[in-house]
């Protein structure tokens, strides 16, 4: 029962020490009136805490699903360059992202009437991964960075597509207006974008492997802009942001090195052999990284 769970790790020690007063306590325990004001208020606390924990768990689960689906979308998008059927990949990714958004809609529904920041820790990882995926797709399509406003615009849901509304949400629909929205916080956005740079680095390396000479230069340009943006923010942001700055620097260095190699070798080696030169170069970088 709840009492046993509450004791947890301390339970064993307690039993050992309490050998003596135990009988006495048992006696006193019976004196506690289960309907005293204190007990009734604790019963309501139990209910309140349980409701809160349940909601938190549901959100964590949703966040996990969002993370997984977003990761898969990113893997799919990496196939975009190498596959001849680029349009198809993009469309498929759109379908996948729609699925992710449906999950986010459920999150938004859970948070109706709640303070979003109370449950922020539960959903933050999922949201960051989603931002990474959606900004990656946006970059492939438009070669620019998606803005916070743009992301938030896609996270306004209406009641139209409610195929999978659970009984919980349908009851709350009666009271609520038929739109839900979720706002991404600036910090989540920043962290998501920082992760995006890692994907862009991978995209750069693989596009060289495919003999694409222009993309790396475009990417290094873009990454430099983002890096400048992050250095502008510097340490005014929270701790997590400055932590990502280091990885971002590494990604940028890799991409810049790639461009350098292309420039130097590009003039002297026939195009079809460039990929070989490049792959040995990246291996070198990877090895260095493994050492450090």
């Amino acid at each position: 029962m709840s009492g046993k769970e509450g004791d947890g790790s301390g339970g064993f020690r307690k039993r050992k020490h309490d050998n003596f007063p135990h009988g006495q306590r048992r006696e006193e325990k019976e004196n506690v009136n289960p309907s005293s004001p204190l007990m009734t208020s604790f019963k309501s606390f139990q209910l309140e805490l349980d409701t809160r924990h349940d909601k938190y768990e549901r959100l964590v689960k949703l966040s996990r699903d969002i993370t997984i689906e977003s990761k898969r979308t990113i893997f799919l998008l990496h196939r975009y360059i190498s596959a001849p059927n680029g349009e198809e990949v993009l469309n498929e990714s759109e379908v996948k992202l729609d699925g992710v958004r449906r999950k986010i809609k459920q999150v938004a529904q859970e948070l109706i009437g709640e303070d979003m920041y109370q449950f922020h820790r539960a959903i933050s990882p999922g949201l960051q991964e989603y931002i990474e995926a959606v900004s990656f797709q946006y970059f492939i399509k438009t070669r620019s960075l998606i803005s916070v406003e743009e992301i938030n615009k896609q996270l306004i849901f209406t009641a139209e597509d409610r195929e999978e509304t659970t009984n919980m949400t349908s009851s709350s629909q009666d009271k609520q207006p038929h739109t839900w929205s979720l706002k991404v916080t600036p910090v989540d956005y920043l962290l998501g974008v920082a992760d995006l740079t890692g994907e862009l680095m991978r995209l750069c390396i693989s596009s060289v492997g495919n003999g694409d000479i222009d993309t790396p230069f475009e990417l290094s340009q873009f990454l430099r802009q983002i890096y400048d943006g992050f250095t502008f923010i510097g340490n005014t942001g929270p701790y997590e942001v400055s932590k990502k700055l280091y990885t971002l620097k590494q990604s940028l260095a890799k991409v810049e090195n790639a461009c350098y190699t292309l420039k130097v070798r590009g003039s002297e080696i026939p195009k079809h052999m460039l990929a070989d030169v490049f792959s040995t170069k990246t291996e070198l970088i990877d090895q260095e990284e493994g050492l450090s």
Binding site: E28, K29, N31, F42, F45
Partner: peptide, 26 residues
């Protein structure tokens, strides 16, 4: 003693998560 015992039974009703509150309850 009576008061604390009642409080203890009250807290026993709660299903605490493994967080700071639970630590203090211990």
């Amino acid at each position: 003693s009576t008061f604390i015992n009642e409080l203890d039974s009250g807290f026993r009703l709660l299903n605490l998560k493994n967080d700071s509150l639970r630590k203090r309850y211990d």
